[in-house]
Design a protein around this nucleic acid. Structure first.
Lengths: 254, 254
DNA sequence: TCCATAATATGACATTTGTCATATTATTTT
DNA sequence: AAAATAATATGACAAATGTCATATTATGGA
C-alpha cells in the first residue's frame, strides 16, 4: 500500500499534557475502517453512540506502560508509536500504528491487567475510543466483528513473529533495511526520486525499532546514503532503491 | 503454573513421516481446554464431531513453512515447537506450545496464504484439528468462543512483543536467563533441587530461541552452571535459582 | 554392549556492535 | 535573527558475540 499523495503531519507542538485535547462524538472518518463497515446499520448506530473521538499532540501520551487498560482504540488519523521500556530505562519501539489500526484489542482490556507498553502520538493524532464494556458487548453481539478482530490480531501476531525472527537472526544493517522496506510499503508516498516515508523518523527512532544504538543507526544510514539506497533525514526520509534494500535485508554476507 | 508431577515424554523415535500416525475422533482429553469448555452442550457435541485428533512423533512435522494453512489446531498433549527459517537457512524457534495452546487461529487460516512457519513436535504429541470452515462456523455461532480466541491471541501478541523487546534490548546472557525463567514457570516441575523443565531442550534449541550461536549458548550455560543457577543438560535441565535468574534477566550491567 | 551419532565443551581469533568524546549541522523557540 | 535544543556525524577504543577448529562426553539404536 503506497499511496500517491496524502499528507497531514501538523507541525505545531502543544505543551505536554496527559489527557486528550477533546473527546467528542466522531465526525467524519478519513478512510474506511473494516471493523466499522462490518456492523449492521442498527448495530452501527448503537456502536457509534459509545464511541468517542480523542485527539493527541506531540509530547502527550495516549496511555503509558502500567496504566490501567480501560479502552479499546482505533487510529483514525496520524500515526502512533507503541513503545516498551525495560526497568533500566532502555526503550524499544515495537510498532508504528497507522489509520485503521486497532489497539488494545487485547487481554489487558479483559482481565484488568495494566498496559504492557506506552502509546505515543507521532505528531497530531486522532483515535476512536470504546469502553471496555461496550467493546465486549460489540464482540458478543457481532460475530463478524469478533472475526474481524481475530483476523487483525492474527495478522499482528504474524507480523511481530516475523519481527522477532529478524531481531534474532539478522545483522544491524539488515534489520534497518527491513524496517525501511516495511515502512516504505506501509506508509510510503511515491515521488520522482523514490518513496518518501509517511512518518517522521529520526535515526534514534530507527535505532529504537531495530535494537541498536543511535550511533550504529547513524553509521549504517550514512552507508545506505553513500550507496544511494536512501536520502534525507528525519522530516523527509526517502527510500531510493526499495529492491536493493530488500535484497540486503535477505542476504547472507556483509 | 508449576505442576508438581506429570510427565509423558515418550522416548520411542518413529521414522520420518509427514502425516500423522492416526487421525481419529478425540478420546479423552488430558486437561480442560478453555475454548471447549465454553461451548454449550449442543454446540459442543456438534463441534466435537468436526474435530479430529492427530498424533505426531519425533522427526515428523505438523506443518511446514510455506504449506497451505487448512486447519486450526489445539495441543492436547506433548509440546510443539514453532520455528521460522530465513531464506539463508538460519532458524529461529519462536515458541514452545504446551497442552491447551491454540495455533493457527490466525489470518493465514482465512485468506489462503501459506503457513508463515513450521510446527514441529518435541517428542510424542497429540493435537486436535478443526477444518478452516468448521472453525469459522464455530466462531460465528459462538460469540464466547470467539472472545476466548481473541483473549488467547491478545495474550500471545503481548508475549511475542515482550520477547521482541528482550531480543532488541538485552544481552545474550540476559535473554537466556529470561528463556529459562519463562520455561520454568510455564512447564517446570518442582523437585528437591530446583525446577526441572518439562521440555527437552538442547543448548542448540536454546540458542535458536534467543538468537545466538550454539557456542555462545553453551558458554553462557556453563557460566550459569558454575554460578549454581542451573544444572543438567537437554534431557534433564534443572533451574536451581529462579530468583537470581530473574534478577540477571532484569539487570543493567554484566 | 558397542557403535554411531548427537550434544557439550573449549581455545584462538575475527567481526560486529557498543561506548564515550566531541564536532557539526538542522530545527525550534524566543 | 539569535539562541537553544535536537539531530546527525565521526573517531578511537572496548566489549560482546560469532566463526572455525577440534576435543570430549553422552545418548539412542543395532
Amino acid at each position: 500500500m503506497i499511496t500517491t499523495e496524502s499528507e497531514r503531519e501538523a507541525s505545531s507542538t502543544p505543551p505536554n499534557k496527559s489527557s486528550p485535547d477533546v473527546a467528542t462524538k466522531p465526525r467524519h472518518l478519513d478512510r474506511p475502517i473494516p471493523l466499522l463497515d462490518i456492523l449492521g446499520e442498527q448495530d452501527r448506530r448503537k456502536f457509534l453512540e459509545d464511541l468517542t473521538e480523542a485527539h493527541y499532540g506531540r509530547g502527550q501520551y495516549i496511555f503509558r506502560q502500567g496504566d490501567p487498560a480501560d479502552y479499546f482504540h482505533i487510529v483514525t488519523s496520524g500515526s502512533v508509536k507503541c513503545v516498551k521500556s525495560s526497568p533500566e530505562g532502555k526503550e524499544c519501539t515495537l510498532k508504528v500504528l497507522m489509520p485503521g489500526d486497532l489497539f488494545c484489542c487485547e487481554a489487558a482490556v479483559f482481565d484488568g491487567s495494566p498496559h504492557p507498553g506506552t502509546a505515543q502520538p507521532m505528531g497530531e493524532v486522532s483515535v476512536l475510543r470504546l469502553s471496555k464494556k461496550a467493546y465486549f458487548d460489540m464482540l458478543r453481539h457481532n460475530p463478524d466483528a469478533a472475526i474481524e478482530v481475530i483476523k487483525y490480531l492474527g495478522n499482528r501476531l504474524n507480523e511481530v513473529q516475523e519481527q522477532a525472527k529478524i531481531l534474532a537472526l539478522d545483522r544491524a544493517d539488515q534489520r534497518l533495511a527491513s524496517l525501511l522496506v516495511n515502512l516504505a510499503e506501509r506508509t510510503g508516498v511515491k515521488e520522482t526520486l523514490g518513496i518518501r516515508l509517511g512518518v517522521r523518523l529520526t535515526r534514534q527512532d530507527m535505532a529504537n525499532m531495530v535494537g541498536v544504538t543511535t550511533e550504529t543507526a547513524i553509521r549504517i544510514m550514512a552507508r545506505f546514503k553513500k550507496l544511494r539506497l536512501v536520502s534525507g533525514t528525519a522530516a523527509r526520509l526517502v527510500v531510493r532503491d526499495l529492491l536493493r534494500l530488500k535484497q540486503l535485508a535477505a542476504s547472507k554476507p556483509a
